[in-house]
Design a protein around this nucleic acid. Sequence first.
RNA 1: GUCCCCAUCGUCUAGUGGCCUAGGACGCCGGCCUCUCACGCCGGUAACACGGGUUCGACUCCCGUUGGGGACGCCA
Length: 474
Amino acid sequence: MTLRTRFAPSPTGFLHIGGARTALFCYLHTRRHQGAFVLRIEDTDTERSTQEAVAVILEGLNWLGLPPDEGPFFQSHHTARYLEVVQTLLATGHAYPCVCSRERLDAVREQQRTTGDKPRYDGHCREAHLTVAPGQPHVIRFKTPQEGEILWEDKIQGSIRIANGELDDLILVRSDGSPTYNLAVAVDDHDMGISLVIRGEDHISNTPRQIHVFKAMGWAVPEYGHMPLLHGSDGAKLSKRHGAVSVLQYREEGFLPSAVNNYLARLGWSHGEQEIFTMAELEQLFDVSALGRSAAIFDRAKLLWINGHHIRAATPEQLLPELAFQLARLGIDPAPSSEQLAAILPEFQPRAATLVEMAQKCRFLFIDSVLPYEEKAARKHLTPATRPALAALAAAFQALPAWTTTALEEAFQATLTAFGLTMGQLAQPVRVVLTGSGASPGIFETLGMLGREKSLHRLQEGLAHLDRQEQTTA
RNA sequence: GUCCCCAUCGUCUAGUGGCCUAGGACGCCGGCCUCUCACGCCGGUAACACGGGUUCGACUCCCGUUGGGGACGCCA
């Protein structure tokens, strides 16, 4: 029997980083075991589910590179089947109608809370054998066994046992006739032949309820693996408060999907002392049964480091669209050509932890003027004392027959010798004038990438700047 | 409150009774490289929550305490 897993998000919001991790683990585990990865949209809550959320979740999965083998399927399309199952449950005495009002339920819970009991349904209608009149508001509840316990070998958590006495009679069908989560999940997991349910550990308490439905229907119970949750820096379950935004936000921020996946996979899982993994490696190595059991805290600093690694390991061609995307966001117009970007990318790959950072660092190449200069850099390196050498260098460059690295180096060296300067004493002022900042790729690489025309223009611009400065201070 | 789960450097982790004077990675600090910034390299900082057992021997097994997390909806 082949492995079948499912990722089952509810479309009530975007796909955040925690959901992405669940999807990733399902996907990787399934790839490793050559199973089928099913995507199922849990939209039984018609009040809160939206089409936009579905679209954003799909887009997120697509960006991460976690395509489902089957689906997306929508639970809202399966309503008739859920209700059919409920009829069977009713007929076999595993379910019953309940006419308790919300007010009564609230009062019961309130009472239980004050007496220190676990808030739960008190079974008021359980043995009432009610026959509801047409139009009479009621829900259908599952008749949970009160004795015994549910025990399962969790793929991640080990054996978990929960006494049936801890459970109450959950609602299967709402008073508006719509099915609830626990019913829909059990029916779909069975109908879709899911053999391993991988989900967050916040679902542990739902598992015995779902297993009861399976048993009442005489279905084979799937295996379960409850993964530890992702926490924010305060140690609590990741939420919007922690900036748990859409995974697509990470694309905006210049992260590579391979890096995000790599980072996420290392949260709770390890393979020897290896830190960097390609998707292909993860698909081969990752196994949910090797997961740890304690929650992990999301650490952006490490994500940044991993992202830098993946940026360095990528080919310029792979990065090209991402960089173009970020440059466009910076308002670079016209957009540089692919050839242009591919040529400069290697210089910036080791210098950026994100594509956003990379775009900022190579921006100087695509704008008309880098004025005004970064203040600190200009103050430190662009002093009146540097003017003569700068002017001489500009003249020497001007006279160059060809804009080659060798020629540039020779002219540079000659200027150095003529003025008795060290490399740094001249390179830094030139760098500021060329890029507007005190940091850039090597000075000859920078000159080469900028090209003759822009370089010469910026040197003149720099000299003019120094002259202006002279006047204001004089 | 009740039930369930967890507990090694700040963070992610290795560790499955002796190989641990606890290893790696991120971060941080220092150094090297060097025209700047990165990258890279070298070094440093820093942890087995606590208390009982079990054992010749516990980070590793058991119990308890403490701490943290999750769940307790006509949400999923």
